[in-house]
Design a protein around this nucleic acid. Structure first.
Length: 508
RNA sequence: GCCGCGUUGGUCAAGAGGUUAAGACGCCUCCCUUUCACGGAGGAAUCACGGGUUCGAGUCCCGUACGUGGUACCA
């Protein structure tokens, strides 16, 4: 018998999938897997004005990249299809109407202007945002304040209307949050939220309750920003008579900007120079490309690991986890209550750790495009793999391989010899030239290369250390990289000769 | 304004009444290394504040401050 845990991630395709979104998806996913349940994607495309072309596919691409497999989704419908709210449109009205009949909701005919007028006229410094609630509803144009005849006339005349929930007064609405414990609200401070918009589409509050109930969702994990709207949804479960199988809830802490305070936004990424989207996201309206973690050179498992540790911890000292391990260890109770500031430095450290653990042949495949992007053609993947093995520990991102290993495939351009030129002399030039000649007599191995240079240096009465850095700069183009003789060994005799000769030329 | 939620080093965090208050990132010092890293050793740095409860409070309760979210026909 299959475990009946069913959790859903409900992205709204309004553009991109940022850190917070991926982490919400991740925690939902991990919980589902931990309990051998189903991970369901239900797309919240209820707001036609904010819907963005391609955004839905983009979301699925991101989930694919990080390896979160879905059990039911618009692409893979399960028993409760459809999985897109726009396609479920006809289902919502009946419940809204049912609430009106029961007296738990009502028709409201107020225009945008009328609402604005109400809010402006009631606005005081004490109360900067007046609500449509039990205090004001009787002054507005709705089926509560109007007579039945008036309502019928308006309905017959096809005057647009919305359906609003009639929130009860002085009722304590409480529930248990899996992360935060007992939460309670006073229903009097909650306003009469719109349930069904004038275009017939449900708002989030109605859609989420109806869909979760119909799709038999057992657990709802979402961002903390939804906490204030919980009482509305709880009241809906109650009014609709679904209270007994209301899902369990948990409100996840927010991901905050690294500097200062507040929710992390995509602007922070641009400002501080790090990605906030999982993958590159091109806004079709502005054509602005928002950088993604994937394209910045992150491994999906590192991205996931980093995100998981932002708000959750195992309680042990272990910090590096694979997706499999997370699926086994995750527990919603161990999620933190407070928001976490995003730290890009630590994110890169996670990537380095996973780079070190990753299979080098896979890294070669992933690195190739970055190399070629930088104008370094890779013909032999196994050669790239060997190069990667030499430098992995000094890389944080896949893109770092370009700098750290690129010179193994392409001689450095624009050598800067100024730092070594002052101390250079003819003796050293001679030494280097003799070393090049010695190549014909030695075996092309790291040790013999080093030994021959050591011997020659002794003969010339030059300290080996004095030519090591210059040699490195000739071969690498800078003060970095693996051992010089390993590099010479890797690039081969011809390349080594050419690079040294070119360097000597510049030192003349 | 009102309502909700939160508060352990710079950051992520462990901690569920008695601990020298873990660990990680970052920072600093040293070792290793004729580069840069990796690795190793060490260091600086924390329980927001005030009241209770208790023999004893980072841990429980209340208040304050601060932060944050909500207060839309957006999600």
């Amino acid at each position: 018998m299959k475990n009946s845990v069913r959790v859903r991630f409900a992205p709204s395709p309004t553009g991109g999938l940022h850190l917070g979104g991926v982490r919400t998806a991740l925690f939902n996913y991990l919980f589902a897997k931990k309990h051998q349940g189903s991970f369901i994607i239900r797309v919240e495309d209820t707001d036609q004005t904010r819907f963005v072309d391609g955004a839905e596919d983009y979301i699925f691409n991101c989930l694919d990249w990080v390896g979160m497999k879905t059990d039911e989704s618009p692409k893979q419908p399960g028993p409760y299809a459809p999985y897109r709210q726009s396609e479920r449109k006809p289902m919502y009205r009946q419940y809204a109407e049912q609430l009106v009949t029961q007296g738990n909701a009502y028709y409201a005919f107020d225009t945008t202007e009328e609402l604005e007028t109400m809010r402006n006229s009631l606005k005081t410094s004490e109360n900067p945002s007046p609500q449509y609630d039990h205090k004001t509803r009787m002054q507005m144009r709705n089926s509560l304040s109007l007579s039945d005849e008036e309502v019928k006339a308006l309905l017959d005349a096809n005057i647009p209307y919305v359906i609003r929930i009639k929130m009860s007064e002085n009722e304590s609405v409480h529930f248990t949050d899996l992360i935060r414990g007992e939460i309670s609200h006073d229903s009097s401070v909650v306003d009469d939220k719109v349930l069904l918009k004038s275009d017939g589409m449900p708002t989030y509050h109605l859609a989420v309750v109806v869909d979760d109930h119909l799709m038999k969702i057992t657990h709802v994990f979402r961002g903390e920003e939804w906490l204030p709207s919980a009482p509305i949804q709880i009241m809906l479960y109650k009014y609709l008579g679904w209270e007994s199988d209301m899902p369990k809830w948990a409100h996840l802490p927010l991901i905050l900007k690294p500097d200062g305070n507040g929710k992390l936004s995509k602007r922070d990424g641009e400002r501080l120079g790090f990605p906030v989207f999982a993958m590159d996201w091109t806004d079709p309206k502005t054509e602005i490309v928002n950088k993604g973690f994937k394209e910045m050179g992150f491994l999906p498992e590192a991205f996931i690991n980093m995100l998981a540790m932002l708000g959750w911890s195992s309680g042990t000292e272990q910090e590096i986890f694979s997706l499999d391990e997370l699926e086994n260890l995750f527990s919603i109770e161990r999620v933190n209550k407070s928001g976490a500031k995003f730290d890009y430095e630590k994110a890169k450290w996670f990537n380095q750790q996973h780079l070190l653990r990753a299979d080098s042949s896979r890294l070669a495949i992933l690195t190739k495009p970055f190399m070629e992007n930088a104008g370094i053609e890779i013909e032999d993947l196994s050669k790239l793999e060997n190069a990667i093995k030499m430098v992995t520990e000094r890389c944080h991102l896949l893109t770092d391989f370009v700098e750290q290993a690129g010179f193994l495939f392409k001689a450095p351009q624009d050598l800067d010899v100024t730092p070594i030129k002052a101390k250079w002399n003819e003796d050293k030039t001679n030494l280097m030239q003799e070393w090049l000649k010695a190549f014909d007599t030695i075996s092309w191995e790291t040790d013999s290369l080093e030994n021959s240079l050591t011997d020659l240096a002794t003969q010339h009465q030059i300290k080996k250390g004095e030519v090591m850095l210059p040699l490195r700069i000739m071969l690498v183009g800078g003060k970095f990289g693996p051992g010089v003789f390993d590099i010479a060994h890797f690039i081969g005799m011809e390349d080594t000769k050419q690079r040294v000769l070119q360097g000597l030329e510049l030192l003349k």
